[in-house]
Simulated scan of single mutants.
Amino acid sequence: MRLLFLGDVVGRAGRTVVTDHLPGIVANSRVDFVVINGENAAGGFGITEAICQELLDAGADVITLGNHAWDQREALVFIERQPRLVRPANFPLGTPGRGADIFTATNGARVLVANLMGRIFMDPLDDPFAAIDRVLDGLTLGRDVDAVVVDVHAEATSEKQGLGYHLDGRASLVVGTHTHVPTADHRILSGGTGYMSDVGMCGDYDSVIGMEKDEPLARFTRKIPQARYAPANGAASLSGVAVEIDDVSGLATKIQPLRLGGELAETWPELLGDAPSDLLAAI
């Protein structure tokens, strides 16, 4: 099977690039399952029910969250009735929603999607290593589920890499989100798990990690807040990673980045088939 993971959707620009490109990718490419991190989709902070539905309608099968999960307070309520919205599994016991679940891909494959939040330079939540061990307890990749996808929403690449190696051979894909800048370390680990430290964001890269530049620069240079952070709304890039997963073992056989539109150099994963016609001729 072929799986596509798209990074943090930031504000209106990020939503627009997803709704512009993803339906065509799903309709015309060899992709069986799509996961999107949507925790910055509502004005850069959190997600609303309407925006969640917009991303699902565009082609997402599952939407993951992170440290901004509850910035839009309505998420605490609607997550209970939206089974395809997944928050970090290491939130404290009793937190609304679910940290992992098993979903069905278009090809009939059973895909477990889990969301974790890091603890280094972030809120001190429960141990993400122990949390994912609990999620996977009793489940064998290739027998009980056909694929396992883990979104590690974390600041430190060391923590993301640690979780990647901790899950090597037990997950199809371990991918980092949160820092909004795509890394160049996409690879298959020795045990067969696809890994990338950060998939990047779906948003305007003429920004400071998706936010209009003036306010972050003012805070960096003067240490005085001038205004609220606001998402940049220029031409956005769609950033993600595609993974080919063995139908028997559930392990990754190929992993390739995807970037479309905006300021970043465009690249198309050949494992999804022919590139869209509007991709730059140089690719």
Results as ranks from 00 to 15, higher is better:
A58N: 07
V18T: 01
I188M: 11
H153P: 06
G240E: 09
G7M: 03
G94F: 10
G11F: 09
A75C: 14
N107C: 15
A58L: 04
L189C: 07
L260A: 13
E159Q: 01
G66P: 07
V145L: 03
R170V: 02
Q226H: 11
N233D: 15
V174Y: 05
T179Q: 11
V175P: 01
I51V: 14
A171C: 11
G240H: 07
D71W: 01
L22G: 01
P124T: 00
V26E: 04
R143K: 13
L112G: 04
L217I: 15
G142M: 13
A42E: 15
Y229L: 15
A50G: 13
L264K: 12
P83L: 04
D185C: 09
V35K: 07
K223T: 01
E54K: 04
I79V: 15
L4K: 09
V9A: 03
G24E: 13
H68I: 00
H21E: 12
F129S: 10
P257V: 11
P96V: 12
D278G: 00
R84I: 05
V241F: 08
A69L: 09
V35Y: 03
P269C: 04
E155W: 01
A242P: 09
E215C: 00
R87F: 05
G262I: 07
L279T: 10
G162Q: 07
A130S: 12
A156R: 01
M211H: 08
M201K: 05
A171L: 06
R2T: 14
L65V: 00
A154V: 12
P88Y: 02
M1R: 13
I120L: 11
G44A: 03
V208P: 12
S29V: 06
L272Y: 11
V148L: 05
D123W: 02
I209T: 10
L56C: 03
A252P: 05
A230T: 07
F121G: 00
A41V: 11
T157H: 05
Y205L: 08
G142R: 06
Q161F: 14
V175M: 09
T104W: 05
A156Y: 00
L85A: 13
E54G: 02
L264P: 04
L139C: 02
P216L: 04
G169W: 05
P182D: 06
V35D: 02
R15P: 07
A105G: 14
E54M: 10
G43Y: 10
L217G: 00
V17C: 08
L4D: 13
H166G: 01
R15S: 06
G94H: 07
M201W: 03
G191S: 13
R98Q: 15
D278T: 10
E54P: 02
R98E: 15
P88K: 03
T104I: 14
